[in-house]
């Protein structure tokens, strides 16, 4: 029960993009088309779930055990970079169509702050293994949700009459603000 609540909290209430500002760059960059947004969301969800497990393991079995917490940041980012590389090689070998669909989005994930943020939050909040995994999956799905919703709105926006200076990023940010406002309406759902 507690895990289900945690899951819902990271999909909706503590949405990574709209309430914690993690992964805003791809949120603004890759939200022009729904298909691209969905592929990106899938790739991120996948990497986030693995990162949650890997960073938890490295943190508890290596860093804490040998008292190397000061190296946390360097180690986490290296773990993420190598994971992304591994996932890329694996997907390329196993499923070429999926690899083509994810294409350039995979390498970009390394610098997505949602991933590093996830690893850091798990270590900061001292989550156990299951909580970390749920946070990874929930956060990834929440990210996909926000991205796909935004892409849907932006596809419609092409037909709208927007004042010249606001075109592009300006109006996208205003829409993101309205979405964040909507999502904050769920805030009372989980205490």
């Amino acid at each position: 029960m507690e895990l289900i609540l945690l899951f819902i909290s990271f999909v909706i209430v503590n949405n990574f993009v709209l309430s914690q500002f993690l992964g805003v760059c791809p949120f603004l960059g890759v939200s022009k088309k729904i298909d691209a947004a969905f592929s990106m969301g899938l790739a991120v969800t996948f990497v986030m779930s693995i990162t949650a497990v890997a960073s938890w393991a490295v943190n508890n079995f290596v860093l804490k055990r040998f008292g190397l917490e000061i190296l946390e940041y360097v180690v986490f980012i290296l773990v993420i970079a190598s994971l992304v590389q591994l996932v890329e090689m694996f997907v390329k070998k196993v499923s070429p169509p999926l690899y083509r669909a994810l294409g350039i989005y995979l390498p970009l994930i390394t610098t997505n702050c949602a991933i590093l943020g996830l690893a850091l939050l798990i270590s900061l909040k001292e989550y156990n293994f299951l909580q970390g995994l749920v946070m990874g999956i929930g956060g990834g799905i929440g990210f996909t949700l926000a991205l796909v919703l935004m892409a849907g709105i932006r596809e419609e926006l092409e037909a709208a009459d927007i004042p010249e200076p606001m075109k592009g990023a300006g109006i996208t940010l205003i829409i993101a603000g309205i979405m964040a406002l909507g999502f904050s309406g769920f805030a009372g759902l989980i205490k």
Binding site: P165, A169, G170, A180
Partner: peptide, 18 residues
């Protein structure tokens, strides 16, 4: 709160655009 951040930055981009 979060929405305020998005709104303010959006308006800043608009002013820059002008």
């Amino acid at each position: 709160m979060a929405p305020g951040a998005f709104f303010t930055l959006g308006i800043m981009l608009g002013v820059y655009g002008i």
